[in-house]
Each structure stands twice: as C-alpha cells, then as structure tokens.
Simulated scan of single mutants.
Amino acid sequence: MALTVLRLRHFSDGRYRWVATAQTVFDVLAVAAPVLVINSVAGVPLWPSAVLALLSASTRHKLTGVLIAWTVVATAVVTGALLGEGAPDSPHGAGVVLAIAVLLVASATAGAQARSLDRYVAELQNARLAMTRQARTDTLTGTANRLALDEHEAALPPGPVSLVLLDLDGFKTVNDTYGHHAGDLLLKTVATRLQSQLRAEDLLVRLGGDEFVIVLPGLPADEVDTVIRRWVRAVADPVPIGDGTVRVGVSVGVAHRPVNDDARFADLLRTADRRMYHDKHAKGVPQGMERISALE
C-alpha cells in the first residue's frame, strides 16, 4: 500500500507482477494469521474479514489467485477451529463448514468478475490501439499518413535525415482512362513496391493523391540517389489493370538535413516539393496534365 501511495508500483512497471504477488501474499497472511490465532485462543470467528484478502487476490490475480487465497484462509479457519476446541464459543462443525462455503462463493464470484473485467479492459485496449493505428494509417494503401509523419518527426532522435518526395507521372491519365478503381489499384501496387524496398527504420507516407514521401534517417546523402534509382525502376514496372497493363513514371524531389541542423520536416518538404516539380517539368510533364508513360 505504501508503494502505491508513493506511486512506485504501476502496472506498466516491469516489477509490477512480482510486487503485486508479494502484496497479495501479505494481504492473505495478514488475515489468515489473526483468524488462526484468535480462533484457536479466544474462539472468536474472524473469518468474515478474509473477504478483504480475497478481493485483493481477485483484483491482482483473477480466479486462480483468489482460489489459492481461499485455500490458505480456509486452512487457517479449520486449523483455528481444531486448535480452539473447547474454547468459549469456539466455532466448529457446521459453523466452520458454513464459513468455508461462504468464503468459497465469495472467492468464485470475485474471481469470475475480475476475470470478466480484465477481458473487457483488454478489449477496450485493443479497440483503442486499433483506432490509434487507423488514425495514423492511410486507408487505401496501408501506409502511414500525415498524422503519423508528424508523430514520427517528434519521436525521431536528432541526426541526419533525408526526405524523398515522389509524385507519379501519368496517374491522372490512368484515372481518367480506366476509372478510379484502376487508380486505387495502381496506388496500392506502388505503395507495396516501395515498402518492400525500405529498411526497417524508414517510413513510407502517402501525403494524398498520388504523392508519397519517404523518410530516410541516418542514410548518407550520397547513398540516397542509389536507393531512389531502385524505387524509380520498381514504380516503372508494368501494373496489371483489367485485361492490360499500365506503366507510370515518377518525379522525385529530395531534401537532406545534415548533422547539427534543426530544420523541420515542413521545411524539408517544401524544398523537396520544389525539386520534385523541377524534375517533373524537366521531363516535360506539366503540373496537373501528366501524361502516361506507356499503355500496353
């Protein structure tokens, strides 16, 4: 109890399981010992106080723990009754059986309710985690979204990082020619191909439409061009659409944050965006009027 008051015991602490077990043991012994002593010496039935220890055990260790606690308390009640045989008002016979039965019912009820509550809390936690993931995930491609990008920036340790902005060339033509279903399929395929090319520490984000950004922490700037060429080839591979295939290109803009630089992602994105549109225009793909690289 002192640990709880001092906030030194919390379920998220790795020691919680052992501290909670120790506390349950002490709770049960603190009740069982007086029951044993006072029953045997004075013949005063204290077994109703055992309910407090049983509730403590059910809270921390559910049904299994409370049944173990009940076994200890019931043993103390029986032993106290046997040792106190002949003492004034000493409980024995039917009184002891009734006490044990009542404690058993209390144990089973408390343990079952605690286990049910534990399952309910676990379901709530799973639902919360699922909602959290959904809020940070692009529903179409399964990649991270803008919210996840902001949180990733906040959690990323200081150091060099590169942001690569990718914009598909020809996506609008695919949408207009084959419909939005084909465009969605194309985006999901591109996202899957890009994700397969990334390291565990990299983050792929769909900014919206046909724009993706990839966060590359700790990758030397002179190696970024190599991985970008690999991405461009992966994106350019034909994508089956209906009875045929489509092939799209990609325009790229890169921004680097060197060591000891405090540039924010927003600044890097603006730089990458300018360079991406410069790349698009250099290839003769006007903004808003992209052409498809090839239709097969």
Rank of each mutant, 00 (worst) to 15 (best):
Ala30Tyr: 09
Phe171Trp: 06
Pro286Tyr: 04
Phe171Leu: 06
Asn145Tyr: 08
Val235Gln: 01
Ala81His: 04
Val246Gln: 02
Pro34Leu: 08
Arg229Ser: 13
Val28Gly: 06
Pro160Glu: 13
His281Phe: 07
Ser293Trp: 13
Ala101Asp: 06
Asp237Gln: 15
Leu29Met: 14
Asn126Gly: 11
Val77Pro: 07
Pro286Glu: 02
Val105Asp: 02
Arg9His: 13
Arg229Phe: 03
Asp150Tyr: 00
Ala135Val: 10
Leu82Ile: 15
Ile214Arg: 00
Asp210Asn: 12
Thr21Phe: 13
Arg199Gln: 10
Arg9Val: 15
Met276Gly: 03
Thr173Ser: 13
Ala182Ile: 10
Val213Arg: 01
Ile228Leu: 12
Asp89Tyr: 11
Asn175Glu: 09
Gly95Val: 08
His10Ile: 08
Arg233Ile: 10
His152Thr: 14
Ala200His: 12
Gly253Ala: 11
Pro157Glu: 09
Val44Thr: 14
Ala87Arg: 15
Pro258Asn: 09
Thr75Asn: 08
Ala272Thr: 04
Phe171Met: 08
Ala236Thr: 10
Ala114Cys: 03
Ser90Met: 09
Trp231Glu: 03
Pro160Phe: 07
Ala135Pro: 08
Pro160Tyr: 07
Ala266His: 12
Ala74Gly: 11
Asp273Phe: 03
Asp27Pro: 05
Ala22Trp: 11
Arg115Trp: 08
Thr24Leu: 01
Leu140Met: 13
Thr177Ser: 15
Gln197Tyr: 09
Thr4Lys: 00
Arg115Ile: 05
Gln125Asn: 14
Leu3Gly: 05
Val161Glu: 02
Phe212Asn: 02
Thr139Gln: 14
Leu203Gln: 11
Glu201Met: 09
Val31Thr: 12
Ser49Asn: 13
Leu168Thr: 10
Thr173Ile: 14
Gln113Val: 07
His61Cys: 00
Leu67Asp: 08
Asn39Thr: 07
Val239Leu: 05
Ala236Leu: 12
Ala53Ile: 10
Asp237Ser: 15
Leu163Thr: 05
Gly208Gln: 12
Ser58His: 05
Thr137Tyr: 04
Val227Trp: 04
Gly179Phe: 12
Arg17Gly: 11
Ala266Asp: 15
Ala33Arg: 00
Val97Tyr: 08
Ser90Asp: 02
Met276Gln: 11
Val66Asn: 00
Leu219Phe: 09
Leu163Ile: 14
Gln23Gly: 13
Val254Trp: 04
Val239Thr: 13
Val25Tyr: 03
Arg7Gln: 15
Ala20Arg: 11
Ala191Gln: 12
Ala30Leu: 15
Asn126Gln: 15
Ala255His: 01
Val190Leu: 04
Phe11Trp: 08
Ala234Val: 10
Leu207Thr: 07
Ala2Pro: 00
Arg291Glu: 10
Leu103Val: 02
Ala22His: 02
Leu8Ser: 01
Ala108Arg: 01
Ala154Lys: 07
Arg206Thr: 06
Gly84Trp: 04
Ala94Ser: 12
Ala148Ile: 06
Lys280Gln: 08
Gln23Phe: 10
Val232Met: 13
Ala272Trp: 01
Val96Asn: 07
Gln23His: 03
Arg17Cys: 05
Val5Met: 12
Gly84Thr: 01
Thr79Lys: 00
